[in-house]
Structures are given as structure tokens and as C-alpha cells.
Amino acid sequence: MAYDQYLAERIERVLSERKALFYQKKMMGGLVFMVDDKMCIGIARDKKTQEDRIMARIGEEAQVKNEKRLGCRPMEFTGRPMKDFVFIYPEGYDNEEDLEFWVDLALAFNPKAKKSKGR
């Protein structure tokens, strides 16, 4: 599983600063940060472009509100966008303020997110 370790450390730092209780889990070809046993935010490599991208679970409302934000794209693996999730490409998280924005959105949605049925 390939992912940018420096990006993982940056996300971990923001989550820690926000006092979020989280753990890391390798899945979906990358690394996911779990909060309250739910996927909150993660990192995966785009197989086509080989760019690392953030997977953020931000909810449908935030998804629509931020769809035009730099670097934000619908999260899709099968040709259909996944509800509540977006990909953020490097231009959308390169500076710390932008990274914090996405982490904060994911943390804000986490209490409303449903746990996986597999748990």
C-alpha cells in the first residue's frame, strides 16, 4: 500500500491538535483515520495520475457546498460518486490552512456518519 507518509503525519498532527481520538487503519489501498470507529479522513493514491489524494467523509451538504473548491472531486471507484465522500487532490491541501479545512469538515460530519455494518 503506497501513500505519502508526510501527508499522513500532517493529517495526524491536525487530528491531534483538534484532540480527536483516532486510530489508523490500512484500507482502500491507502491509510484511513478512524474516529469513533468510523472512517473520517484518509489517503489513497490515484492509480491513473499516481498522485496522493485525500479521501474525506464530509457529508452530502458539505459535498455540494464545496464541490467547486480547488482540488475537490467526487469520490468514485465504480463510476458512481459515493454519498458523503470527496477526494481532494494536492492543489486542495498543499497549504496547512486548506488541509485543516478538510480535516475540520470531516470531523464535523463524523458524529452524524453511520458506522459500517461490518462492525
Rank of each mutant, 00 (worst) to 15 (best):
M1C: 04
M1G: 06
M1N: 04
M1T: 07
A2D: 02
A2Y: 09
Y3V: 14
D4V: 08
D4A: 09
Q5R: 15
Q5P: 13
L7Y: 00
A8N: 12
E9A: 14
E9R: 14
R10T: 04
I11Q: 10
E12S: 14
V14R: 10
V14K: 10
L15N: 00
L15H: 05
L15G: 03
S16N: 11
E17L: 01
R18Q: 05
K19Y: 03
L21Y: 07
F22H: 05
Q24G: 11
K25H: 05
M28T: 13
M28F: 12
M28L: 14
M28V: 11
G30Y: 05
L31C: 01
V32L: 08
M34S: 06
V35W: 12
V35C: 15
D36Q: 02
D36C: 00
D36G: 06
D37M: 09
K38E: 02
K38R: 07
M39E: 07
C40S: 04
C40L: 01
I41D: 00
I41L: 02
I41R: 04
I41A: 03
I43N: 03
A44K: 06
R45Q: 10
R45G: 03
D46G: 06
T49L: 05
T49Q: 04
E51H: 07
M55Y: 14
A56V: 06
A56Y: 02
A56K: 09
R57M: 09
R57F: 07
G59D: 05
G59S: 04
E60V: 09
E61F: 04
E61T: 05
E61C: 05
A62H: 08
A62D: 10
A62Y: 09
V64D: 13
V64R: 14
K65I: 10
N66M: 12
P74V: 13
P74T: 10
M75A: 15
F77M: 15
T78I: 12
T78G: 14
R80T: 13
P81M: 12
P81G: 11
M82P: 04
K83M: 09
D84C: 11
F87T: 01
F87Q: 03
Y89T: 07
Y89C: 10
P90Q: 15
E91Q: 15
E91K: 13
Y93V: 00
D94T: 15
D94R: 15
D94W: 12
E96N: 02
E96P: 05
E96Q: 06
E96V: 05
E96K: 07
L99M: 08
L99D: 06
W102F: 00
W102T: 02
D104N: 06
A106F: 02
A106R: 00
L107H: 01
A108V: 00
F109S: 03
F109C: 06
F109N: 02
K112Y: 00
A113D: 01
K117W: 04
K117A: 08
K117Y: 01
K117L: 01
K117I: 00
G118Y: 14
